[in-house]
Amino acid sequence: MASTHQTPIERVLQHRISPERLAPYIRETPTLQEAIRLYRWNIDLSGAVYEALHVFEVVLRNAMDEQLCSWNASQLDPDTGRRHSYDWLIDPSALLLRIAGRDIPEARRRALKSTTRRPQGQREPLHEDILAAMSLGTWRFILPGRHDAGKQRLWDEALHLAFPHLRRTPRELERAVEGVYNLRNRIAHLEPIINSNVPAQLVNMRTVIGAIDQQLLSWFTSTERISASITARPSPASSTR
């Protein structure tokens, strides 16, 4: 980085944000001033991605949940012979218990904390409470990726119906969700995403949303801020190092 006079606010930011956290931005720019501009842009881009996740993650889980509810209600309990209920998060069949069984109790605990804090008092979490507490990683994991006969069966009998406009393989769909999931985790941990190929993850978001609903894809495309944020990336005034 070229040696330049630091303004008082630049010294404060370098100290309070820390040289270590600013290091990835400093490597990209010739001056501390521009590194701070890039850091600020990273915040804006992260915010735009997180806004898009409010659509991507909610739509994905609702589409998959709808099919899992219907499928679960068609499954017989091998011990009692009764049919399971639609509520797969409360009464999961054996296959769903094997695939997502570790995540459901944790989501239920988070949902219980949320319902306990409500003004009307504590109540048992409902399906929608637990669903909202499920992580994006769970939905990625349920999709068929590497060979797993159980996940493939779930896809063939239920989950493919959640993606009626899918033009790719289930494995490609799972990879698209995984890419967005990894980007989401970087943002959640306040990490730099300046070199995270965000445009590719925007394509993945569009792929998944479009596979679910084409009208929703049109709305998403017209409202997301990621594209504008990418275009607004500050360019170094000089390539001097």
Rank of each mutant, 00 (worst) to 15 (best):
L126Q: 13
P192G: 03
H54Y: 04
N204Y: 09
A200C: 05
P92C: 10
M64D: 02
R117S: 14
G145R: 05
E178L: 14
A237M: 10
S74I: 00
K151Y: 03
Q152I: 14
T29A: 01
Q152Y: 02
A211M: 08
I9K: 06
D213M: 12
A100W: 06
N72M: 08
S18Y: 01
E224V: 05
W155L: 03
I142D: 04
N204C: 13
T169W: 02
G145I: 01
R233S: 02
R123Y: 04
P236T: 02
L60I: 07
I212M: 15
F141W: 11
D129A: 04
G145N: 02
T231Q: 14
R11E: 10
F220I: 08
R175C: 05
A176N: 05
L190N: 13
V59R: 15
S3D: 14
I212V: 10
A23K: 14
E128D: 13
D213K: 10
T169Q: 08
E174I: 00
E20K: 12
W139A: 06
S135D: 08
E128P: 00
A188M: 13
E128R: 09
L13G: 02
V198T: 13
P125C: 08
S135Y: 09
I130G: 05
S238F: 08
D91G: 02
A158G: 07
G101W: 09
L143A: 12
S46N: 05
P119T: 11
A52D: 12
V180G: 03
L216C: 08
V208T: 06
S114E: 14
I142E: 05
E191K: 13
A94M: 12
T138Y: 10
V198S: 07
E10D: 02
W155C: 06
P170A: 08
R40L: 11
A211E: 08
R102Y: 05
M134Q: 14
E20T: 14
L190W: 15
A52C: 09
G210E: 10
T4A: 05
S227P: 07
D44P: 00
D213Y: 12
D65N: 13
R186P: 05
A94L: 10
P234C: 04
R233E: 07
P105R: 10
Q6H: 12
H15E: 12
A73P: 00
L112S: 15
P8G: 01
